[in-house]
Design a protein around this nucleic acid. Structure first.
Lengths: 146, 146
DNA sequence: TTTGATAGAACTAAAATGGTTACATCGAAA
DNA sequence: TTTCGATGTAACCATTTTAGTTCTATCAAA
């Protein structure tokens, strides 16, 4: 299967980096790209999505970025929706136009859709239970090593 | 985002159809394709996966299919894994090689991976709580209408 | 042996993804 | 006011996944 794109893990990585950095100037696209180990344009594309979602503020010209929302208010679901929102926000793709002449084809859709929605909600609820702050706290002991 | 492929919804549709059909001969690829409203080859590809997973038995030559496992033992997770198993079974794709020279880059991976796994487990647990039998029961009142 | 079915290879088009180059623009500082 | 490092973004490319189609081989019962 096609996996959820790495934009999500990159976005969380980037937000964590911004969150733990004392100065915005330590969060230029090039520095972030260096930590993530990808091309700066990839970072700029993702930071554009985070900016559009109101999560960060990027300083044009001078460079650097900082959080616009406290890290305890940013959940993994917030991030997921900012960078990986599927069409209509639906994780599952339902096959088009089941045959209405078939009693199963006519009725399976609403029943199955409800179950798919429930699975997606369980998934999203778990993502919503974790904040960037919590990730930072998990990161802190490691940061002291450096 | 790229959604979970419609193979899953088609597979559930097909299994439900086989489950409610009294005779296997009413479950030929063409009939199933007609109810799903797609090409018979798509059905054959998916039924090959269901067969490989041991869920159904397809009668070569004579045609038709039937369940090899009672419908109350087939969960939506069983079906999902049979037709949509991601690489290594991972729903999320983690970005490759974060920079080990960066304290965040070095440590974010294991922390974030644990959260992604937890979200996937919540998702799978919900799928595992629903069986084909339950879908059949939801379908039955509608079948009487026909 | 005919017939209606499954099995599956080969090909196509469309879309998502990750990556790259190139260029316009911004804004502080020389 | 020019310079310089940064962001913003368009354009393009290769790869992969998906869904669909055509075609051929094979199967098994009548």
């Amino acid at each position: 299967m096609k996996q959820i794109s790495s934009r999500f893990s990159i976005a969380v990585h980037v937000l964590s980096l911004i969150a733990v950095s004392p100065d915005p100037e330590q969060c230029t696209g090039d520095i972030l790209a260096g930590s993530v180990n990808t091309n700066p344009v990839i970072i700029r594309r993702i930071s554009a999505m985070l900016k559009k979602a109101g999560l960060i503020e990027v300083r044009a010209g001078i460079g650097g970025a900082k959080l616009k929302v406290p890290p305890e208010e940013i959940t993994l679901l917030t991030v997921f929706r900012a960078v990986d929102s599927a069409s209509e926000g639906e994780l599952f793709h339902f096959h088009e136009n089941p045959n209405p002449a078939c009693p199963v084809g006519r009725n399976i859709e609403s029943i199955l859709r409800a179950e798919m929605r429930a699975a997606q909600e369980a998934f999203e609820a778990r993502l919503a239970s974790v904040t960037i702050r919590q990730l930072m706290d998990g990161l802190k002991p490691h940061l002291l090593e450096a």
